[in-house]
């Protein structure tokens, strides 16, 4: 993971990724459609960002079936929560500093 000197994480430069992490750090798990609705993004856009976060082990994908319908939900990993907190702290520090 690329982390700049100030502690900002390159992976979280996109607003969509910030949004995904914000939702998942508060909620135990969230499914694809609910994420899409909460963040107001398109399927493709959301999917690509989810994939990037998953590839970096920041989020976990849980695939299951509800009845016959496949339901994909996401949750944050320990590493993800930690990385996001560091990023948040860095953002706050930058704003506080002159």
């Amino acid at each position: 993971m690329k982390v700049s000197i100030s502690g900002l994480n390159k992976l979280f430069e996109s607003r969509v990724r910030l949004g995904i992490m914000s939702v998942l750090i508060i909620n135990d798990s969230f499914n694809f459609n609910d994420l899409k609705e909460t963040l107001g993004v398109t399927d493709g856009n959301l999917a690509s960002h989810l994939k990037a976060l998953e590839a970096n082990n920041l989020i976990r994908v849980n695939k299951q079936f509800i009845g016959r319908k496949p339901n994909t939900s996401y949750s944050i990993t320990k590493a993800g929560a930690q990385a996001f907190r560091i990023h948040l702290k860095a953002l706050e520090d930058i704003i506080k500093s002159q």
Binding site: R15, L18, S22, I26, N27, T38, L39, L91, I94
Partner: peptide, 21 residues
């Protein structure tokens, strides 16, 4: 840049609130 970061934080806070309550 700082303004951008400020917007980032605002977005994060809003999404956390909207998605949990």
């Amino acid at each position: 840049n700082k303004l951008n970061y400020f917007e980032d934080l605002k977005t994060i806070k809003k999404i956390m609130e909207d998605s949990s309550r």
